[in-house]
């Protein structure tokens, strides 16, 4: 049979696992590359906030966000072990093969934020999609005004990307604030929800000319949004990524559709203004 002219968007390409780094309990980062170097080059043009579909032999496919910044040159996923597919990925050893297709979704329009202050608020593994934007913004530091990072986790052990956090804490022109719900292991930093950081003495969150990125579990999300709105943020200057059960990633299977939006193609990045208009639970 002759190959069709239309590209098969469902067809994943073989990828090789390079190495695995443990982040927190049940969460690991998987460094990989496509077998085919042309594929790799094409994929590397992704935008922060986009996602990919990962296939595990004999198990299935799942969507996952892209934590690297396109400026980094490396491709990796950070994945929590929750279902059969993610567990299968966790079982892979360096050198093992799997398959990837993407990148998909709209991603963050990083150019639109040129000349603005950036505020990143991440709860737990909500830092995974935001890591991409943060690294991207730091790489293009002179394009943005102030940069603030707020990251909260249940316990100090559950803070994400700790080496990066240390690096960002040391980076001049970047403010990085951390907090935990429960202080353990000799933690002497802030204790409380992420929003509690906004009111800490010495913290001055700019509201004017600022974009706030918010990612995290539903409860955290609601509270942070409330805080930001009270501080005077307008709904269209708050952006987030939505997570949905996804099967195709290309706007056809219907699983991710919420309100009028297909999260996989119209999202996953939405402003809070848009999210509210979708009119469904997130």
């Amino acid at each position: 049979m002759s190959a069709p002219a239309t590209e098969n968007v469902y067809l994943p390409k073989t990828a090789v696992l390079e190495r695995v780094v443990s982040e927190i309990a049940e969460v690991k980062t998987f460094y990989w590359h496509f077998e085919d170097s042309a594929e790799q080059e094409a994929f590397r043009q992704f935008r922060p906030g986009q996602f990919a579909q990962v296939s595990l032999f004999g198990v299935g496919e799942f969507p996952t966000s892209l934590p690297p910044s396109p400026t980094e040159g490396e491709t990796f996923f950070t994945v929590r072990q929750v279902g059969s597919c993610t567990s299968a990925l966790h079982r892979l050893q360096p050198g093992d093969k799997f398959a990837v297709r993407g990148p998909y979704g709209n991603g963050f329009p990083m150019e639109d934020y040129y000349g603005k202050n950036l505020v990143f608020v991440a709860g737990g593994i909500g830092l995974i999609p935001l890591r991409s934007c943060i690294v991207y913004a730091l790489k293009n530091r002179n394009k943005y005004k102030s940069i603030q990072i707020f990251h909260g986790a249940k316990t100090p052990k559950e803070l994400m990307y700790v080496p990066n956090l240390h690096e960002w804490e040391q980076t001049p022109g970047v403010e990085c604030y951390l907090t935990v719900d429960r202080a353990t292991d000799g933690w002497n930093g802030n204790v409380g929800v992420v929003g509690s950081l906004f009111k800490k003495p010495g913290v001055q969150v700019p509201v004017e000319n600022t974009t706030a990125f918010v990612c995290g579990p539903p409860v955290m999300f609601r509270f942070v949004i409330k805080d930001l709105l009270e501080m005077g943020f307008s709904e269209k200057n708050i952006v987030s990524t939505l997570e949905r059960y996804m099967k195709c990633g290309v706007g056809k299977c219907g699983h991710c559709c919420i309100g009028v939006a297909y999260v996989c193609v119209d999202g996953p990045v939405f402003t809070y203004e848009q999210i509210k208009k979708l009119g469904e639970d997130i």
Binding site: V82, G83, P218, E243, Y245, H255, I258, D281
Partner: peptide
Amino acid sequence: GFTRMAGGHNPR
């Protein structure tokens, strides 16, 4: 199961 996510959250 149409919308239920791997983590257990079901928006619908």
